[in-house]
Computed example of a mutant assay.
Amino acid sequence: MTTTPTRLSKSARREQLLDAALTLVRDSGADGLSLPTLAEAAGVSRPIVYDHFGTRPGLLLALYRRLDERHRAVTTQALSTAEPSAAGIARVISAAYFACATDMPEFNAVSAALKGDPEMEAIQHDMYASYTDLMATALAPYSSLTADALRLHCVGALGAAEAIAAELNRERASTDDAITALTGLIMGRLDTA
């Protein structure tokens, strides 16, 4: 008995295509990702891929958003189980950040492939601001800084996190050392209440 393949809904097909695209980026880097290579890897026709993403930058932007959503979900989940203290929150934020940096190397590849794209810059700015707000909200109950000062502190910590993640990905630091360093930086000027 032969079964006919079921047709995926548009959203399920998009998820399947993004999964295949992430695999391609993981295996071959972002340079090897194009709409035709994605169609081939996913076993679909080119028009299906073009219908979902339109252009290569459209595909890369969709991948970037998906990776950011995963990063935010991991951090939010980790925060829900964090020890309710400044140090506990800072450590969980640090651990979640570096877990994503090492577990999702595609993030950097996709980001690099989109350098100079004006839409990408706007999206990165929005995502960065959103992640900063997530951090500041989690740390606010444990800080005597004003909301603006705490947010600026989080901006600085995220900048440091990016630099530390680069060292981690170059294998110039261990995960434990990276977590300890970022936790210390977050705590450094938190002015805990």
Rank of each mutant, 00 (worst) to 15 (best):
A101D: 08
A86F: 02
F98R: 02
T137P: 02
P141L: 01
F107N: 00
Y131W: 08
D117K: 06
A122L: 13
M120Q: 15
E106Q: 15
D103T: 11
L79P: 02
T75K: 01
G116P: 05
D148N: 14
M104F: 14
G116I: 13
A96E: 02
C100H: 15
S80H: 06
S80E: 10
H125S: 14
C100Q: 12
A109N: 08
Y142E: 04
T75H: 08
S94D: 09
I89R: 09
R151W: 05
A129M: 11
A87C: 08
G88P: 06
T76D: 11
V92E: 03
I123S: 08
K115M: 11
L152E: 12
T146A: 08
A138Y: 01
A82D: 01
F98S: 03
S111I: 07
L139P: 06
A95K: 04
A78T: 06
A147G: 10
L145I: 00
A87E: 15
S144K: 04
A149T: 14
Y97P: 00
D117L: 02
T102V: 15
L134C: 09
Q124G: 08
L145A: 07
A82E: 00
S94P: 09
D148R: 15
T137H: 10
A109F: 04
Q124L: 12
P84S: 12
Y131C: 09
A95N: 01
L145P: 02
R151M: 04
A140T: 14
A78C: 07
L114N: 06
L145T: 00
P118T: 13
L134D: 10
T81N: 11
P105M: 11
R151C: 04
Q124F: 14
S144L: 10
T102W: 05
R91C: 07
H125W: 09
L139G: 05
Q124R: 14
C100R: 10
R91E: 12
V110F: 05
T81C: 07
D126K: 12
L150P: 01
V110M: 04
A149Y: 07
A147N: 11
V110Y: 06
V110T: 02
I123V: 15
S94F: 05
D148A: 15
D126I: 10
H153N: 08
M127A: 13
A82N: 00
I93H: 07
F107P: 00
M120V: 09
L79R: 04
T146D: 14
Y97R: 13
A101L: 10
S144M: 06
T132S: 11
P118G: 05
